[in-house]
Write a protein that binds this DNA or RNA. Sequence first.
DNA 1: AATGAATGAGTATTCATTCAT
DNA 2: GATGAATGAATACTCATTCAT
Lengths: 227, 227, 227, 227
Amino acid sequence: MRKKENHSVTAADAASGKPIRRRDSVATRARIMAVATREFASKGYEGAGTDDIADRASINKRMIYHYFASKERLYLAVLENAYLKARASEATLDLDQMEPLKALQTFVEFTFDSFVQDRTFINLLATENLQKAKVLKKSKSVSSFNSPIIQAMGRILKRGEAQGVIRPGLDPLHLWITLIGICYFFFSNIYTLSVILETQFDKPDVVATRRAHVVDFVMNAVRPHKA
Amino acid sequence: MRKKENHSVTAADAASGKPIRRRDSVATRARIMAVATREFASKGYEGAGTDDIADRASINKRMIYHYFASKERLYLAVLENAYLKARASEATLDLDQMEPLKALQTFVEFTFDSFVQDRTFINLLATENLQKAKVLKKSKSVSSFNSPIIQAMGRILKRGEAQGVIRPGLDPLHLWITLIGICYFFFSNIYTLSVILETQFDKPDVVATRRAHVVDFVMNAVRPHKA
Amino acid sequence: MRKKENHSVTAADAASGKPIRRRDSVATRARIMAVATREFASKGYEGAGTDDIADRASINKRMIYHYFASKERLYLAVLENAYLKARASEATLDLDQMEPLKALQTFVEFTFDSFVQDRTFINLLATENLQKAKVLKKSKSVSSFNSPIIQAMGRILKRGEAQGVIRPGLDPLHLWITLIGICYFFFSNIYTLSVILETQFDKPDVVATRRAHVVDFVMNAVRPHKA
Amino acid sequence: MRKKENHSVTAADAASGKPIRRRDSVATRARIMAVATREFASKGYEGAGTDDIADRASINKRMIYHYFASKERLYLAVLENAYLKARASEATLDLDQMEPLKALQTFVEFTFDSFVQDRTFINLLATENLQKAKVLKKSKSVSSFNSPIIQAMGRILKRGEAQGVIRPGLDPLHLWITLIGICYFFFSNIYTLSVILETQFDKPDVVATRRAHVVDFVMNAVRPHKA
DNA sequence: AATGAATGAGTATTCATTCAT
DNA sequence: GATGAATGAATACTCATTCAT
């Protein structure tokens, strides 16, 4: 009944300096989170069921309530975790150390590539927006989720303008939304687009073409009028 | 939205001098569609319930099955109708009659504005993509939904390149996806963005700022390198 | 919308000397009866649905109520018709003209063969007995259904005893039940027997073997002790 | 009717000194089975409802699905249980220890009497045959249901032939079907027969007469030609 | 005679959640 | 910390039947 993932989890715990808890408890919680993330992402909030989650995590359903109190709170935990992971992985980019244009390109490529690997976050956001962010609003850690990257964007634009490689007048917030959006829509709507346009958009070569287009489009959009 | 049987029914009615609305299958069908569209768009496929739809349409639940056979088929009808409406309203734009850049700008503004008024289509697409287009795949009228606009895009690019006002090398399909995407993401994710960035993105002035940014960004992205 | 069976039905009507009715009405009634018989026999009273019956008879569901007033009354009509047909076909046997043993054998073979061709009657009886003859009790023509054959049985036994070819002491009513029963059970339970005994009992050679066994068994059971 | 888990549960209970009935899965399961058997037997598969079964077993409807997964699986459990009970009670007969004719008579009387007491099995078989054994086919324990008695029949015939008390040429399988059938039909169709023949066939004296007839008929049918 | 629209009570099944141990 | 039993309300869907024309 016990699973092998124990080791890594315990290690992570130890590393983060938390008091040592009974291994089972940590592992069970982690297993619930992993399965719930998959289920919510693939079926939406309504579509995912506590029975399925419990079964697939090989735990008793009651444990979900033991650790998370309710389906909604479990979902919120999943959502917060997704934001944390996204931000944490953005934080490794070190955009401030790069040339401004290189920084923008890197950010776009990073965003695009993160969606190629895993659309979990996209699906969670789709679900949450369908509910008008009803659950996310209840989060307490929300405020810490997004600001840094907007500010980083601002610093890039400033440096770029100063160097004359980026045209002035770009708003960091809206630029950020735009860059994400260009990457996002292709993946968030990949299934309906594939049906409507009768093309398989998730084939590697199509994805590669798309990636090139996105980078090219953005680079041209931010360049000064006469280089 | 109206069906062909209208003619005969209305004609017969007029002829017999009876009051217009009796046991009006067309009206009932239309009422179900209208309510279902609202419900599916606001709650997703799983979230919307046949009981609610029936209640809100003031019809007997059984009628849904009389006219649409199943919840899924009703949802598909709603989805197809949304595509048809979207394409029909795009078709009124007459892009081929405009200057290339003007045409692009008009298309972007039109797309953006259509989302301002009504996020129904966005929500239906979100729901459908969560289900990997499971239902849309079953549509028989699908093929007629999207091609014309991509071709129009191609003609605009061609004219723009010829006139030297649009840079060469842009792919019409990917350009179309990008333009839609830039408009789309802001609205599809407006609730989570509002929470995360602690801003109310649906306030008119924010929307106006966003609109200007989008148009500006696109116009700069398609311009030739040295004008 | 009209069907070809019209002719035969009308002919039958004419032959029976009834006043000529509008053909459609007769045909519709007949079509409902035919389909309902099939449906009730194959699915039981609960299992058969008025929707299905209407669809398969290519008539409007309302017609069932027009002609038969309710599902139960339709079912009763089907049941009465089945009894009438069974008795009518028994009446063609002319058992009184045969040698007593020959008459018994003929009756057994006739009963057995009638089940080979068509298990409709068996299924209707199964359904009706599950309901404790709730519906049949309401029939008004019931009394005329069965007596003649029991009396015929009595005459055969009398003649057989007199001739010394049938042992005395056999009760005509119970003999009749026994003869029917020996034929009946094999067919009424053919599906469960086939599964339990892992044999396909409806294969022609198995049926033939069964028929021979039944005749042999009965003939031996009625014979006088010392021939 | 009781299950093996009883022992451990009861033992544990006794050991811990707790009151006997707590949240007793065995009892609940058994109660559902008992009620379901009654309901399916008296109303057929379609006629019996999960709501009724739950109410009459004084359990929450959800429990049916907890223990049996679906109405069909519950019905299958009921069916298998009925076969097991029937075979188990047959097994107590010890036919091999009796004189051949006595053994046949005992088997017939036993079969007849088992139907007098309880027509549950008959009704379940009627229901199942109406569905063409659709459910029984899915049983995994089916094969073990019937073979022993046929073989016992074979041994009786062999002994009887050797002793010259049973005529040769009787097939054990068909003899078994015939013996059951003679008993079965009277009870399976007792309601329709009672209506048609305007007699109450379930009155004790009629049943007794029938029993005597059946035994007499069978004994005469198996006897050698010249005693 | 015939039709399609409409109804309300019913079906099996699933849901998130809580209780007892 | 963990479990299996238990719950009641909700789900999509079907039923026999009646209404209006």
